[in-house]
Design a protein around this nucleic acid. Structure first.
Length: 260
DNA sequence: ATGACCTAACTTTTAGGA
């Protein structure tokens, strides 16, 4: 089964692209980020018509995450458990059940950007990663297949961007951000791309500006983090790079992992 | 050449993205 994630940069502005990719790739489970709409404005009918159950955690204008699944969805969690007072829709978790009776827990997450560094935005990013870390510790104790998929807004390595010098002061590449990603992995999670490929200069995002796409000036910030029980079943990873060249493309492309 | 974009919103400019 395929589990994928994609920051669509407005699900309604991107609807034609989303439907086309779902038809082409036909993933079993998809975690979407940056819906940029409230729940009632999510294009439920169009996506359900392709055979997906839609679980939506949106908000007006910004953020918003969803889980699309061809499999039955249960055990839903909206937001991080300590999210009292946090209005930003950045986390959605559910368990999907496979026909063979096995289950996989999936989280769709949209880590804060954090720019500019030195402001409360960067503080919020690091605090959000700490909150996620605390929650994931509890999830790992369940010892079940778990995939945390989404836009992490973190460039893990120098070779995950086209020019480290350009990104050195950016919230996506700051040592504090990269350390928070490493701390999370050190709990026992596996970056699916690193386990199955790991090649440098393999990107998932290209800015709309400055001809970043034609020049291949990208960054790798969309990741699937797998628990040991999920990592043991990793069979393949894929980045749908060509999607970036389509009309009205999102600045991110879909990333997915196949599990046996 | 150090340029160049896109989206939502009570829009005619701003905030946010990365």
């Amino acid at each position: 089964m395929w589990v994928a994630c994609w920051n669509v940069n407005s699900v309604n502005a991107r609807l034609a692209n989303v439907l086309a990719w779902l038809n082409e790739a036909s993933p079993d489970v998809v975690c979407l980020q940056e819906l940029k709409c409230e729940d009632h404005k999510f294009p439920h009918e169009e996506i359900e018509a392709l055979g997906y159950n839609c679980l939506v955690h949106g908000q007006k204008s910004y953020n918003g995450v969803a889980i699309l699944s061809k499999l039955p969805i249960e055990e839903v969690r909206r937001g991080l458990p300590d999210g009292e007072g946090d209005e930003q829709a950045r986390y959605l978790e559910a368990v999907v059940s496979r026909p063979d009776g096995s289950a996989i827990r999936v989280a769709s997450l949209y880590c804060p950007n954090g720019n500019p560094v030195g402001t409360e935005k960067f503080t919020y990013k690091l605090a959000w990663m700490e909150r996620l870390q605390a929650h994931v510790q509890g999830l790992l104790a369940l010892e079940e297949p778990l995939v945390l998929a989404g836009d992490w807004n973190i460039i893990p390595r120098e070779e995950d961007c086209w020019d480290p010098a350009v990104w050195s002061g950016d919230a996506l590449f700051r040592p504090e951000s990269r350390a928070s990603w490493r701390r999370l992995l050190n709990l026992g999670l596996t970056d699916a791309f690193m386990a199955m490929d790991g090649a440098g200069h393999t990107y998932t995002f290209w800015d709309y500006q400055a001809g970043a796409w034609p020049k291949d000036h990208g960054i790798r910030i969309d990741h699937l983090a797998c628990s040991p029980q999920a990592a043991d079943r990793l069979a393949e990873v894929k980045i749908w790079r060509a999607v970036r060249g389509n009309e009205k493309a999102s600045d991110h492309v879909p990333v997915g992992a196949r599990f046996s």
